[in-house]
Design a protein around this nucleic acid. Sequence first.
DNA 1: CTGAAAGCGCTTACAG
DNA 2: CTGAAAGCGCTTACAG
Lengths: 339, 339
Amino acid sequence: MVKKVRLVDIADRLGLTKVSVSKALRDHSDISEDTRALVKKTAAEMGYTPNLVARSLSSNRSHTLGVVVPKIAHTFFSSVIEAVQEEATRRGYGILLAVSSESAALERTHIERLLSMRVDGLLVSVSREAPDLGIYERVRQQGVPLVFFDRQIDGLGFGSVTVDDRAAARRAVEHTIGLGYDDIYHIAGTGEVGIGRERRAGYEDALRAHGLPVREDRIVSGGFDEWFGYRAMRDLLAAGAEPKAVFAVSQPVGIGVHGALAEVGLADDVYLVSFGDDAISVFAPLSDAYLRQPTREMGLRAVELLLREIEGEGRPKRGEEAHVVLDVDFVTDHTVPTL
Amino acid sequence: MVKKVRLVDIADRLGLTKVSVSKALRDHSDISEDTRALVKKTAAEMGYTPNLVARSLSSNRSHTLGVVVPKIAHTFFSSVIEAVQEEATRRGYGILLAVSSESAALERTHIERLLSMRVDGLLVSVSREAPDLGIYERVRQQGVPLVFFDRQIDGLGFGSVTVDDRAAARRAVEHTIGLGYDDIYHIAGTGEVGIGRERRAGYEDALRAHGLPVREDRIVSGGFDEWFGYRAMRDLLAAGAEPKAVFAVSQPVGIGVHGALAEVGLADDVYLVSFGDDAISVFAPLSDAYLRQPTREMGLRAVELLLREIEGEGRPKRGEEAHVVLDVDFVTDHTVPTL
DNA sequence: CTGAAAGCGCTTACAG
DNA sequence: CTGAAAGCGCTTACAG
């Protein structure tokens, strides 16, 4: 195990002071071109790796972003995280990733730790549980920039990047109505999470706009994953339901619904629409139509918004926060794009 | 923006010294129970958040693990990462996540940065490109523990957690042969990546073991994603091939193959086996059988192995490194487990 | 059980 | 263009 080389080691070798070396390495204008080049060459030769921990401590900037999500193993979040990571790298930042597993308590613990690690900013998608507002109050007090993505908490004064779930859901359901279906089931998420509420509202908007009744017995709430979708549809069928059209709150739910329908040979008889965002939707038409969420753009914009606060003129004041709302594509055509 | 409270602020308030406060907060036996309780209570009241950056610098331990993967938005990796993150959290570590996008150069850059950030250890799954061995030499020199997972580089003296891809592939293909298929196509990955090579070897093992010829025109190499699987199968069909059974190197490739077959109404006529690891495989039987990779266990074991080196007696010497090989389940039954 | 000293490896702000 | 001083907020090792 080789001893790590420090600024002072380079300085000693060159007969300079560590400050000059530090400046040369960072291309500070104080140092002459020649000296900079010499210092850099020597640093490389000696295998110098700057100690970013020390740099963070003295500069009070970590060039690290904290990211908190409810889940990773989910096509939506993994795609957003990938985009966040790529954009952060491009801008010279690292990512500290934490998963709340839909627990508000864990979300709080993670944010506390990230604050302790002195991240320059926070990107969070809140858990399904009722949020612990105290921790967000603390984030504000400490003056750490934060941007919510996908799932946000209103009125806290933080920026956000979301999707217009309500409009998207409405559009999907109206399309289904346009196809002649007047009795559409909704396998819904949960009311606690904004997206569950919004998508259900969009579903109801569409029905009302077309003079159709909103029937509670056509709506099954409870979750966002495959298991929930499967169980919900299986139970409906067991109870004698004969759905002709279904709007699923998420792609996993849609997949579960499809699974339950396929089991009894009904997959082709039911018009299924769901949210969806990855290659599965393109190559395996489990749904007849789907809403394509702009995951990469969401990640990219979230980083952009956050860095603007970090590197810019500071966080916007309460009431002036930036909210970006992205569009959702509605896809009814499953043809694989030309390669 | 409230000024952050430091150790010394608590000490001043209590008439103690910052060292005592530091120790009390860390439950050091030097400090009496009463004092510890008082210090903790005061710290909480004052809203103290330890500065982990400062702690890292002085203790030379960051309690942070660097994780480098080729991709996140992929069910396999997102599932492993989730397990890594959870286990790391449980053990008191944070995760710095970086994505190489299958580029050896980016992989190197990321590892350099993580080294600079003084992570306590590294977890890496190498990119598809020929690796830059220099960076691994440097990791060794700096004495930073590293564990490879899924995709490793042999002979470098680092531990690894992998899956016996060759045996798994052989098993899947032998099962297919047992069903009566004697002409099985293999939509393969690439030779550069170990798993591509291993799975292909397993495919060939199975054929040879049953006296079947290995025909180059039955093997299409090139990638691991949906697009590749789709294109490969589409081209085969266009060239007049009439496959009866296909072994796909990965779940995404299997999905692409299924998509191409479905387009021409052949999905039900071809026996398709592929790797697969998530809910999609359970609810949407795109393959007739699949190999279930132990993603969560892989993440868990990798963290375990790494922490043993970090917290234990130091890194094993070259030649004594720990290699964990996990089993792969072969699943031919698509019944959804009882809920 | 408590404390004073030294130091981790940098950067910032100020002199020259 | 170069340098000396001070400090970031903690921990370690050594005294008492």
